[in-house]
Each structure stands twice: as C-alpha cells, then as structure tokens.
C-alpha cells in the first residue's frame, strides 16, 4: 500500500496523498513531514558540515517574542501575552532545525511553558494548562510548583480522583512542601463531598 510520493522541484518538498483507510500512512506522513523539515533546515545551511550549534538569530527572535509576552502580562493584557508566548514556543518548535542542540530546545520549551501555564491558569483555560503541565512533567522537570498547579487544574475541571493522585505524587517527591499538604487536604475534602461522605 504505497501511497504516491511526489516531489516538488521548486520547494524541494515531498508530499503524499493521505489515504485515510490505512493507519500506517500516519507513520508515513509523519516521516515525510520530518524529512521536509530537515530539508528546509539543511537548504539554509551553506556549510555542508553543519553542526548542532543553535542558531543565534533564532534564539534572539524567540527571546524577543517571549519578552514582549512578559511585558504584556505585566500590563495585564493577558490574552495578548498568551498569544505572544504561544507564538514564541511555536517558533522554537517549528523554526529551529531538528539538529540544533536538544538541550537548548528543551530549555526553551521548559522555560517558556512555565509562563504560558501561569497565563492559562489566570485566564481559566484549565484544560490547556493541564496539557502543558503534563508535557512539562514528561520532559523530566520535577518541581513542586508543577504538581501544585496540576492539582489545581484538575480540581477546577472536577476530576477529583486525578487531582488527589497527582497531589500525592507531588508529596512523595517533595514530602516537606507545605503547600502540597494544604492541597491534599483540599482534595480530600472535595472527594468526601463527591462521595457523599460529609
């Protein structure tokens, strides 16, 4: 079930017809997209022996966008700030070459996501905040603040069991954190209510 691979000579991009019937075309399209991204990045390189060194220009652009966002946040223009931050993260994900140092890309994402999450929580976008928090956790960043925010988001979304599970995990990793303890009590209280135990 080979789907037709076509090559555009001008843009140097590959494309395939996506046949929804076959699941494996999903893997194919992912790979094609990955190749296209690599092509774009390599074409920009004049030196055939390009290294993983991160692109300084891009780093500057991303930082600028990030700082605009922070400025907007300080001026209470929350929606704007969120847009800026989202854009900054997108830039880091889409514009950087896939071979640029992973550490740099990771730090970009981790740093900016934290601010984005705070904005989302302020704006009440709990589900989006939750997704971003989970991504942050997946990247290996273990921090009591993340667990606090996650528990909070779950509670706001009325998922009391999940809130308690996460809060307990946070406490297991940071047993002395007072805020987590308070959160845990709150979770238990809400759960008791949910279960008709009060």
């Amino acid at each position: 079930m080979t789907t037709e691979l076509s090559y555009n000579g001008n843009s140097k991009q590959l494309s395939i017809e996506i046949d929804k019937k076959y699941e494996l075309t999903d893997a194919r399209s992912i790979n094609v997209n990955q190749i296209n991204k690599l092509t774009t990045a390599i074409i920009g390189e004049s030196n055939p022996n390009f290294t993983p060194k991160p692109n300084d220009n891009l780093s500057k652009m991303i930082r600028n966008m990030f700082e605009t966002g922070i400025k907007n946040m300080k001026q209470n223009k929350m929606q704007e700030a969120l847009k800026n931050l989202t854009l900054a993260i997108e830039m880091s994900q889409r514009k950087r070459a896939p071979y640029e140092a992973f550490q740099i890309q990771l730090q970009d994402v981790q740093f900016m996501l934290r601010q984005k999450i705070d904005l989302e929580l302020i704006l009440g976008k709990n589900l989006e905040a939750l997704q971003d928090l989970e991504m942050l956790l997946n990247t290996g960043l273990l921090d009591p603040e993340i667990f606090l925010r996650k528990t909070d988001a779950y509670l706001k979304l009325k998922q009391y069991n999940l809130a308690r599970v996460d809060c307990e995990r946070g406490l297991s990793l940071f047993p002395t954190n007072p805020k987590l303890k308070v959160m845990l009590n709150e979770c238990n209280r809400r759960l008791a209510e949910y279960n008709g135990d009060i």
């Binding site: 992973f102 550490q103 990771l106 997946n138 990247t139 290996g140």
Partner: peptide, 12 residues
C-alpha cells in the same frame, strides 16, 4: 520514547 527527553536532560 517520550521520556528520552527526560533521560537526555538528566544525563546532561
């Protein structure tokens, strides 16, 4: 595959 990132960042 997900936590490779974790592993990498832990290593480095």
């Amino acid at each position: 595959t997900e936590d490779e990132d974790e592993d990498e960042s832990n290593e480095k």
